[in-house]
Design a protein around this nucleic acid. Structure first.
Lengths: 196, 196
DNA sequence: CGAGCGATTGAACGCTCTCAAAGTGAGTGG
DNA sequence: CCACTCACTTTGAGAGCGTTCAATCGCTCG
């Protein structure tokens, strides 16, 4: 299935009818408060899964950030596959367990890191994930806008922008055309991410 | 196994040798930054599991908050049980998937809620979990100290204390002896938790 | 070339933190 | 039984970081 930028893949509360795998592109997962405040709980890239849920409905919304292709596994079929190949269940557990560890790192970031530390951590995480997909560690391509980054890190777009500027002024990163960021001083960025 | 208050159950980075189930008591899970800042990622009560990890080492530390009894399942044995009873694998997946949803709620709290909203949400969550364990919805017993609550909600002890005082002054809650909190106006508390 | 959206920059405010002190309660020993 | 200690909580005052509100900049697209 193809999704254009900004298109919803599914919404919080919808019946959880399928599991998806991102083939290419970028997806964001998010939750809303009644008054409109938003928290993005994760960005997904090629190879990532979404829709892992035991519940009857999705507990978050998913939306394409850039042009995205996903592979859809209807829940019924998935369940029959799992019955025939118990190994798949183990794989699902492994994925969920891994996402849980990522979520806990993100809690540490949201609860205890300062703005500049959040941005530094974010860039390093994106870089590491790019490497895992076989892409170079730098420059990092930011598929998402400042407002998505802000809602992911628990900040405002203005603070995100200011933090980027500060890191740029310090020579730690370089903002390039095409919304790419060159991690000029990766070690220094690592130190900043950890609070030094 | 028995753990006195403050005793570590396992530490981040340790070899993940076992899965635990809390029989009685309270456990906190947390992560540290190099400079000592701490984020508590969860509190566990009777019936909750800890140590769900596919990785070789634990990605967080676990410590008893009150006197706690846990049931320990060595990983090896667990794996053989899972091999013989594939249904267990499904159960593990279900638990992990559920914790993931809880973690996402917590991200929304940490990233987007104000101090008073965080406290209100916290009290309601504790109450709901107490009900699930067959206990009354109110009063809620706070097994953990202010500093643990602060590190769970991404606040300081002072702010936690002040927020409690504000909610008390507004008549929404009542602070009782034995570190119990009476949710006098549950509806109002719910509204505050959601930002109204 | 103008419209429009997102990003950046600026100025001022306010929520939460920091630092400090006082209050409270449980446990200990005289 | 009471004074004392120690840890934790509460309260106060002031500062700072990130937000809010607002304006400008820059790019893309029609």
């Amino acid at each position: 299935m193809r999704f254009a930028p900004g298109m919803p893949i599914f919404d919080e509360g919808e019946s959880a009818a399928a599991l998806y795998n991102v083939t290419s592109g970028t997806v964001k997962l998010y939750k809303h408060l009644p008054d409109g405040r938003r928290q993005i709980t994760g960005f997904l890239f090629a190879g990532d899964f979404l829709g892992l849920a035991v519940k009857e409905t999705y507990s978050y919304s998913a939306e394409a950030v850039s042009e995205t292709y996903v592979c859809r596994f209807p829940r019924q079929k998935l369940e029959s596959v799992v019955r025939d190949f118990p190994h798949f269940q183990q794989r699902l557990y492994s994925i969920a367990s891994n996402e849980l560890a990522v979520a806990q790192d993100q809690m540490l970031l949201l609860g205890r890191k300062a703005a500049k530390e959040k941005i530094a951590s974010f860039l390093l995480t994106l870089s590491a994930r790019a490497v895992r997909r076989g892409q170079p560690a730098t420059p990092v391509a930011l598929q998402m806008g400042r407002s998505d980054i802000a809602d992911y890190l628990g900040l405002t777009t203005e603070t995100v922008s200011r933090s980027f500027t500060q890191l740029k002024s310090a020579g730690v990163i370089r903002l390039m055309e095409g919304n790419k960021v060159d991690l000029a001083e990766r070690d220094r960025l690592q130190e900043i991410a950890e609070g030094n």
